[in-house]
Write a protein that binds this DNA or RNA. Structure first.
Length: 445
RNA sequence: CGGGGCGUAGCGCAGUCUGGUAGCGCACCUGCUUUGGGAGCAGGAUGUCGGAGGUUCAAAUCCUCUCGCCCCGACCA
């Protein structure tokens, strides 16, 4: 993509309403624009990241055996009356009346809808287990939306729902998601620590939140110091979803980690010097709640003996749009965003320092064409701007690598390669640049 | 939902107390010069001062009502 043609409205100064770093940088980097409190439009650069994150989530769900569906944003009130949550959910639920005075709502979550779908479709234990997910916009009319997309009213969530015949099967489904979540976050370069969590209004008795440690986290969390040096992905990667995941689950939940609500200083097993207290961003939450919805909503199947068995259910959520903010919270410096390669909107930025110079322009255009031809996603800054402005813009949007072509290097047949994260610079022979990034593009994806 | 703050050009702000021609920086447009870390000079365009009502010869400024946004707390992917 040529930057001269790209819709990338960068801001040089911080908008007054943005207080935390991810919100500031998303606005400054032209990723989002706010339309009202907690509701955002995603501009081209931001949407590319959102889709990358979504795709990683999708791939790990598919790998775990979950199947993708798509449920609507608007749901009928009567379903929520069946579970009793229509009244319980309170003002956070956006209620709508259609032209026939039918009570509708913009879905804050989908337990009721999916339970109704499965209830009507699955009648035999032979059709279990099932795990269905969708990635859809949700709306929760938060009293106080804040922190940009980290705590919006409208947000993109991956939610899925498992259906099993018995608690043992349901626990296996829960364990699968436990593993899938670790893999998902690790692929984005995030260390998300599973923490014993309160089940809240969803209900149930087993629940873990996946928390990313960050100074700007919304809540206080506590964990064993050992978590800081742990590479969970290495172990999670080797697991087979059909094997018994309980030992893995037990191992990783034995290392202390708890949210504020679940942490009790008097009963905490860790000595004070082993306990880390930090701020956490909740990027995922998994629940096992048994028959909480299946019983009131009559979601039963015929068991092996012909008896009616209510479905054992769990639900699992990942805040996809929140993750974009969380990724920035975890990956930035004073100059801007530093994208992990797996979620970067473009793999590479190409800066032509002197587009008015014919030799520079020809060389940069040619390099751009070759990179594209090699399948490298490259954002090409071909604008007539001062060098400083281009460097600042490229650092701000945070592409993992930059190729900087100027008259100085061109005369020597070289191009400068700068790594965004480390700031390390190398001179590359011009002709090797394409091959180098064609290779890294394959590795990263 | 309790407490606090803010709405003036695309962004950041001054002007409001003490009513009297709506300003500054950046961004934008034109021209020339410049070109390895947010360039310089010259010229130019941009506003229902959040909205409604009121007071006044005169309202960004005073009064009333209203809408929006942000922060702290309680609540949540």
């Amino acid at each position: 993509m040529r930057l001269s043609q790209y819709f990338l409205p960068l801001l040089r100064e911080n908008p007054a309403e943005a207080q935390i770093v991810s919100h500031r940088l998303m606005l400054r980097a032209g990723m989002i624009r706010q339309s009202s409190a907690g509701i955002y439009s995603w501009l081209p650069l931001g949407l590319r990241v959102l889709k990358r994150v979504e795709q990683i989530v999708r791939e790990e769900q598919d790998r775990s055996g979950a199947q993708e569906i798509l449920m609507p944003t608007i749901q009928p009130a009567e379903l929520w009356r069946e579970s009793g949550r229509y009244e319980d959910y309170g003002k956070e639920m956006l209620r709508i009346t259609d032209r026939h005075d039918r009570e509708m709502l913009y879905g804050p979550t989908n337990e009721e809808l999916i339970t109704a779908i499965v209830r009507d479709a699955i009648k035999s234990y032979r059709d279990l287990p099932k795990n269905l997910y969708h990635i859809q916009w949700k709306f929760r009319d938060e009293v106080r939306p804040r922190f940009g997309v980290m705590r919006g009213r409208e947000f993109l969530m991956k939610d899925n729902y498992s259906f099993d015949l018995d608690p043992q099967g349901a626990k296996h489904s829960y364990n699968k998601m436990f593993v899938a979540y670790l893999r998902t976050f690790a692929r984005m370069g995030l260390k998300a620590i599973p923490m014993r969590a309160d089940t809240g209004p969803i209900g149930g008795d087993l629940s873990h939140e996946f928390q990313i440690l960050a100074e700007t986290g919304e809540s206080e969390v506590f964990c064993d110091r050992l978590w800081l040096a742990t590479d969970i992905l290495a172990e999670a990667e080797e697991l087979n979803y059909d094997s018994d995941l309980e030992p893995f689950f037990r191992h990783w939940t034995s290392l202390y980690a708890a949210t504020d609500e679940m942490h009790r200083p008097e009963t905490c097993p860790l000595p004070p010097d082993q306990l880390v207290s930090a701020r956490g961003i909740e990027v995922g939450h998994i629940f096992y709640f048994g028959t909480k919805y299946s019983v009131p909503m009559g979601a039963v199947v015929a068991g092996a003996g012909g008896e009616e068995v209510p479905l054992e259910m769990g639900s699992y959520g990942i805040g996809v749009s929140r993750l974009v903010g969380a990724l920035i919270e975890a990956n930035h410096d004073d100059a801007g965003i530093i994208w992990p390669e797996t979620v970067a909107p473009f793999r590479l930025g190409l800066i032509n320092l002197r587009p008015s110079d014919k030799a520079c322009r020809n060389a940069a255009d040619e390099l751009y064409a070759k990179l594209r031809g090699a399948g490298v996603e490259v954002l090409y800054d071909d604008r007539e701007e001062s060098p400083g402005a281009k460097f600042a813009a490229m650092d701000l949007i945070g592409l993992p690598d930059q190729l900087i072509l100027g008259p100085r290097g061109l005369a020597a047949g070289t191009i400068e390669w700068k790594r965004r994260r480390t700031g390390a610079r190398h001179e590359l022979p011009l002709e090797t640049a394409v091959a180098k990034f064609a290779a890294t593009q394959r590795e990263a994806r």
